[in-house]
Design a protein around this nucleic acid. Structure first.
Lengths: 244, 244
DNA sequence: ATGTTTTAAGCTTTATTTAAGGTTTTATTG
DNA sequence: CAATAAAACCTTAAATAAAGCTTAAAACAT
């Protein structure tokens, strides 16, 4: 999932980030309220984790603004134990769940999962698939024609992104944000190189699918010049002429 | 077992915690009613020990809420001797057993054991196993090919965790919580070192299994880079193709 | 004093990014 | 309408960085 974490205690933030990333999520961290607010106006995260006490703006203000602008992602609010009375006002403001610090990771993960289930993108399905490709983010595997393949973390998340919304074109900027967790510091070439190795692994895999004898490996990940990449979900119909 | 202990008298709590940990359980302690309530909504403990008098919420309220939300773990309620009349209302509210303070530790252990036997995770099978590895949490032994092995406490609990849910990937953060009882203060390296010694002991053991002559010790505990560890339950099928 | 756990250090393996040179497509211009 | 230039993209290998492993020694606990 694509998660925004707004938390100014840097140490807590980074340990939460790590825990979530270990679970296979992509986490964007913001320490500043104002910045976070803008970010939430612009991106459709699967879940937002929002600290209630922040520099520049408090969590409630931010959340109210988001809801006023019809941002619908689920929000999990974090409060200090001493601020428990904020719970009600937070839920009124449109939070979907709340948690007080300190908390256990198992608990956080479970809540994130619960919220994500509500979220549009994650609807129920643990595994996503297109044609002979299946991917289970929770269990950390990808299968091509039923055979497990190992991908590196970045390749894995990238494929997951494309699989979840086949036919959708993702720009490099979007990919940077949703795979690397930040649109900055990621060069185009980094993305190109990752796409390249991912394609290689996929087409090697196809070659080993004897049952479905491909004349040539279908191009699963298409390049849309000047725009980005997309997953071609027609890969089931192999005998088609793939020329335009 | 994974136990939640809800008790506001800190001294009592920590001595009970210690006692249970010596028995090989993983104990999470909460002193606050409200926090504990949330914790119980989210985690599937094997047993919960719940004090009846608590700050912020009383035990009965908490338990009723849990049961209303279909939380099925067994709950052992603790009451002060003077509150013995609460016994009936407590059992009505869904407690599985009760005990009045002060109590003997032996008695507590016996009751925990009894409850644990009922618990979903431990259901009827006292021992968990995968291939030639068997582990009995209650009797505190591990056998590899029928031969008893001694493991240190942390190694033991870690193996138990992995064995109970083979194929599931546990992240370092999760392991920290479920083996050490807290996701904080446990460094990666601590976990790595424990995994390392555990693996060594397991593979030494395999080498002594003449009957099942392994070409090389199968890798029972797999590392999923960037994600965590998991137990490979295919260890029975030794002639498997281990290629990816 | 003994067994256990944690830390520290050096090491190995794997992943990611960069860099360089190559294609292909699109745009420009003689 | 070529020819050429420019941009976007691809590929591979090398360099860098990160994650994990192992061992011994220090710290902790019983």
């Amino acid at each position: 999932m694509w998660i925004l974490l707004v938390e100014d205690e840097k140490q807590l933030a980074s340990s939460v980030q790590r825990g979530l990333e270990e679970e296979g999520h992509v986490v964007e961290v913001m320490h500043d309220g104002e910045q976070a607010e803008l970010q939430g106006l612009v991106n459709d995260y699967d879940v937002v984790i929002l600290d209630w006490r922040l520099p520049n703006r408090d969590g409630k203000q931010i959340l109210e603004h988001w809801r006023a602008e019809d941002r619908t992602f689920p929000v999990l609010m974090l409060t200090a134990l001493s601020d428990l009375d904020h719970k009600v006002s937070g839920l009124d403001a449109g939070a979907d769940d709340y948690m007080s610090k300190p908390f256990s990771f198992e608990e956080l993960l479970a809540r994130i999962r619960a919220l994500g289930r509500r979220s549009s993108e994650m609807t129920n399905t643990e595994t996503v698939s297109a044609g002979p490709i299946e991917l289970d983010a929770r269990k950390h595997w990808v299968k091509v024609c039923g055979i497990k393949r190992s991908l590196r973390p970045k390749e894995f998340i990238l494929l997951e992104l494309l699989l979840k919304e086949p036919e959708t074109v993702f720009s490099k900027t979007q990919i940077a944000e949703r795979v690397w967790g930040s649109p900055y510091y990621v060069s185009d070439n980094t993305i190109e190189a990752t796409i390249s190795t991912l394609r290689q692994k996929l087409s090697e895999s196809f070659e080993e699918c004897k049952e479905m004898s491909f004349e040539q490996s279908p191009k699963v990940i298409e390049t849309i010049r000047g725009a980005g990449y997309r997953l071609n979900s027609d890969i089931v119909n192999i005998e088609q002429d793939t020329r335009e």
